[in-house]
Amino acid sequence: MLKLYDTELSSRLLLGTARYPSPAVLSEAVKRSGAGIVTVSLRRETSGSRTGGAFFELIRQLGVRILPNTAGCHSASEAVLTAKMAREVFGTNWIKLEVIGHHDSLQPDVFELVEAARILTNEGFDVFPYTTDDLIVGEKLLAAGCRVLMPWCAPIGSAAGPRNPSALVAMRAAFPDIPLIVDAGLGRPSHAAVVMELGYDAVLLNTAVASAGDPPAMGEAFAKAIDAGRLAYLAGMLEPREMAVPSTPVIGKAVFS
């Protein structure tokens, strides 16, 4: 079972809550995907006020764990402030830490990210950092107190799928005991299956589900792909080879010819 900061979760899918056609569709997508965690942006949905009102109430009523995020923050201090506000609003120490370096590309600013992670961990937060696939940044985040890493596999919202699978493989090998969640860049269920086959522990999705023609159906499709990828990883997959390998002996041929 997936364990994140001492919480056991039966689903390996984390779902974002932005940009659905309506809260009703969002709610249905959460149900059909079986997601155990939803992330919600404080800055975007509150427009500076601290209430968020009815929408946050709808999120609470989904009955799943809430992982507030700091989407839209561009500096450590901004992110720390938003995280504290999130703790008040949702009564949780969990925070998905996003510190964006570039408004346009949405690349994480890893320097500010590590700094914010250090401050927040010291203040008792359980930090889920949205980071790149850089190993050294990963190490520094762990040193700062993070016990989960959430690397991208492509830019946010790009739907491009794993752009650099070997970097993801290296990261898995470098941090064998740390829960790794692919956050950002997934477009279709097969992408999710690929990263799960690489041994990743979970995936986080938003646009790929929210902007699908039928978000609840897409949520379910992803859930199935994630299960398939995880099961395949545990089952042990064949390594690819250049030659055909007949599954029955070829009669009349020398075996090593």
């Binding site: 949905e45 509150t46 427009s47 006020s49 209430t51 968020g52 009102g53 009815a54 929408f55 839209g72």
Partner: peptide
């Protein structure tokens, strides 16, 4: 489209 009933002035970001 922001999920709040706060009707204060437009934000700098928006």
């Amino acid at each position: 489209m922001i999920e709040t009933d706060d009707d204060g002035p437009i934000s700098a970001r928006s």
